[in-house]
Amino acid sequence: MTDAAEQHPVSRREIVSFRVANQDFCIDIGSVREIRGWTPTTVLPHAPPYVTGVMNLRGAVLPVVDLSARLGLGPTEPSPRHVIIIVMIEEMTAGLLVDAVSDILTVNGEEIKPTPDVAAGPAKTLVEGVLAIDERLIRLIDLGRVFPDHERGEP
């Protein structure tokens, strides 16, 4: 596998891994703008339960998604120890509420495997693949599906 990777350096990608509800997840580092500590958000009316509200990032108003709630792992009780990862999803900027950021890793594209069929529900649709690192299973999040805005128009 390492040989193959050396022959295809193109497929190397950097990811940011983090913990949500005692599970490991990651996203591509290219989508990450910055990482901030939790600050209280302003509640948005009529928003899905996993949108905790909007936050002020240097004058811009960004929605914050509670990833745990989004993944169906139960709502987070945010505290100052929690972290918000600011991500770009296409033209949109948003915050992802997670428990903690673990690492920045360089992985080979081939290491990412299809999501096993054991999962179901939101976790299944949001995770586009998994990879095993140091015997930990890290789930790669499909950012395009996280945000409710991108589901507008769907029932």
């Binding site: 209280p40 958000t41 302003t42 948005l44 009316p45 009529h46 928003a47 509200g53 909007v54 936050m55 002020n56 004058g59 811009a60 108003v61 960004l62 929605p63 949109m92 900027t93 948003a94 409710p148 805005d149 507008r152």
Partner: peptide, 21 residues
Amino acid sequence: NYGHVPGIAAATILGNGRIAL
């Protein structure tokens, strides 16, 4: 960054840095 919220026109940032709708 989000979309239209029924009943809400926009948001603003208050003196304490918090957002008000």
